Computed example of a mutant assay.
Amino acid sequence: MRVPSRSPGRQPGPAVTSTAPARRVPAAGPRAGAEPDLSAYRAAVAELLVEVGALADAPSVTARQVLLDQRLREPAIAAVLDVTPQGLIGARETLLLEMARYQPNARSSAQDLTALVRIYLLSRVDVLWWRDSPTFLTDDQVRASTELVDLEWLRRRGLIEFRYQEQPATVVGRGLRAVRRRLRPAATPRTAGLLFRRARREMIAFLNDLAREFTAVAPDGTPPLWVTSLARSAEHQYRLRRLGYAAMVPSGHCLGWAADVELEWYDRFGARPVLAGLLLARQDAGEVNVVDEGQAWHVCLAPAARRRYRRAYETEMGV
């Protein structure tokens, strides 16, 4: 069993509205060809979030822009953003635009500006890792891709260790879902469900492994791991954005390498800290990137773990 680390590079928590910490002395940039230091990046983002939280009021727009101009150019952050597809300047402009357009709403995982900045910056690790992976541009590409496997086919054969639910496809289905929620409001996580019940083989093996570990260490009576989102298309990502969700572009979901795992629902079973600890321990081990999105946590598999989980999938499925 993995033991959660207490490293300072861990995912930051909710917005903090205290005085910003003393500024760090910028470290030397990475050597040419070296991978960016992700622990340093996450620590620098955590410090930046404290300062953003202190400038979260409406009159602080200019001060926030100046802050971001300065902090995004610091070596620990710039080293990551500079090697994403957008580059440092593109990432900066996108983040400022996201902040200018931000409107809090019940659907969005970004409950405030600090959460928006956290989700955007930490999700850039996904696109750094998988910058050469092709994007699923349309819904039809997700449905037809041979890189993705149908979860339902596996579930019926007892080969899926985690739970999920699909989005109802009809008005009648949505009505029945609403009735079940009224009758048993806490029986399942409150989620729209999967539009596409398809995932990469490596992601299935990873989620099965996480689900087994969670079952082994969670308090008695805790339900199995719930997955609320897997692969989706850029077309659907923009659809979510129009509905008010904090769906970042580009996204690890649209590359097939990310999933969202329910966290909030497990509070009622006393299991949320356990699951959070497992995810963060795997991040500390370099296996995944984790982004705290409130109700669910976004998890992206690292390229270094791809081969191991592909072998695990083939062993589990007997292929």
Rank of each mutant, 00 (worst) to 15 (best):
L113S: 07
L113D: 08
L113C: 09
L113I: 11
L113Y: 01
L113N: 06
L113F: 04
L113K: 09
L113M: 12
L113R: 10
T114W: 01
T114I: 01
T114Q: 14
A115L: 04
A115P: 04
A115K: 09
A115C: 03
A115D: 15
A115H: 08
A115N: 09
L116V: 01
L116A: 06
L116T: 03
L116S: 06
L116P: 01
L116K: 05
L116G: 02
L116H: 03
L116Y: 02
V117H: 02
V117T: 10
V117M: 05
R118M: 00
R118Q: 11
R118D: 08
I119F: 05
I119E: 13
I119Q: 15
I119P: 04
Y120R: 09
Y120T: 01
Y120I: 02
Y120S: 02
Y120D: 10
Y120H: 11
L121S: 00
L121I: 04
L121K: 04
L121W: 02
L122Y: 03
L122S: 08
L122T: 07
L122F: 08
L122G: 05
S123A: 11
S123T: 12
S123N: 13
S123L: 08
S123H: 12
R124W: 07
R124N: 06
V125P: 00
V125N: 00
V125D: 00
V125L: 06
V125G: 00
D126Q: 12
D126S: 14
D126T: 05
D126P: 01
D126M: 01
D126N: 12
D126R: 07
V127L: 13
V127D: 09
V127E: 11
L128E: 05
L128G: 02
L128D: 04
L128H: 07
L128T: 03
L128I: 06
W129G: 01
W129V: 03
W129L: 07
W129C: 03
W130V: 02
W130Q: 08
R131C: 10
R131P: 09
R131E: 12
R131K: 15
R131V: 08
R131N: 11
D132M: 10
D132G: 11
D132H: 14
D132W: 10
S133T: 15
S133A: 14
S133C: 12
S133V: 13
S133L: 13
S133M: 14
S133Y: 13
P134H: 07
P134M: 06
P134L: 09
P134I: 11
P134E: 10
T135Q: 13
T135R: 14
T135C: 10
T135E: 15
T135Y: 12
T135N: 08
F136D: 04
F136H: 07
F136K: 06
F136S: 02
L137D: 13
L137T: 11
L137E: 15
L137H: 14
T138A: 06
T138W: 05
T138K: 11
T138D: 08
T138H: 13
D139H: 11
D139V: 03
D139R: 14
D139K: 11
D139W: 05
D139Q: 12
D140T: 11
D140W: 08
D140P: 02
Q141F: 01
Q141E: 15
Q141V: 10
Q141T: 12
Q141L: 12
Q141D: 13
Q141R: 15
Q141W: 03
V142T: 05
V142R: 04
V142C: 04
V142P: 07
